[in-house]
Amino acid sequence: MTIKVIRGNPTPEELAAALAVVRARAAALAAVPPGTPPATSAWSDPGRIAQHRVPSPSPSAWTRTYWPS
């Protein structure tokens, strides 16, 4: 694996930290058995937004959407 610094002048400590993160991520991906579906976040679940069906509005529902004061 080759890492190339495109901009800046990182210190050896900064390079070592970046390389440790890249290696840890690669090791974590290698430890997952093939064919395992990726973990999904609950934030991307559409069921958390609408947990029950919303009733369909009636044909005249648009007239009740705004009540002037």
Rank of each mutant, 00 (worst) to 15 (best):
V32Q: 03
S56K: 03
P34H: 08
E13T: 12
P34Q: 13
P38D: 13
T2D: 10
L15N: 00
V21K: 00
A24E: 09
A30N: 06
R48C: 00
D45C: 15
V5D: 03
P33I: 01
W43D: 15
I49E: 09
T65R: 15
T40V: 15
D45W: 06
W62V: 14
P38H: 02
K4T: 15
T63D: 12
S58P: 11
R64N: 08
A18C: 14
P55I: 03
S69E: 11
L19Q: 06
R23W: 07
R53T: 00
M1H: 14
S58C: 04
G47D: 07
R25P: 04
T40W: 08
P57Y: 02
A31V: 04
V32L: 02
Q51V: 09
V5A: 06
P12M: 05
V5G: 07
A16S: 14
A26F: 08
V21Q: 02
L19N: 01
L19C: 04
D45K: 11
S56D: 05
A50S: 03
T40H: 11
A42C: 05
W43A: 15
Y66Q: 03
E13R: 14
T2Q: 10
A24C: 04
A30P: 05
A27H: 03
G47V: 00
R64E: 10
A61I: 02
T11Q: 00
L19I: 08
L19R: 12
E14D: 08
G35H: 01
G35E: 00
W62I: 15
S58Y: 10
T40P: 07
P68I: 06
I3N: 04
A20T: 08
V21G: 02
R53N: 02
L29P: 00
E14H: 07
R23E: 10
P34F: 09
H52T: 11
I49R: 15
E13V: 13
A27P: 01
S44H: 07
L19P: 00
W67P: 01
G35S: 00
A28R: 09
G47P: 00
L29N: 05
P68A: 10
A50C: 03
N9M: 07
P33C: 01
W67I: 13
A30T: 04
A39T: 09
R53D: 01
A17N: 13
K4I: 08
V22M: 15
W67A: 12
Q51Y: 10
Y66A: 05
H52I: 07
P38C: 08
P68C: 07
A18D: 10
A61R: 09
V5L: 05
R23T: 15
A30I: 02
V32I: 10
G8R: 08
R25E: 15
T65Q: 11
A39G: 05
V32K: 07
A24M: 08
A27V: 00
P12H: 04
A24Y: 03
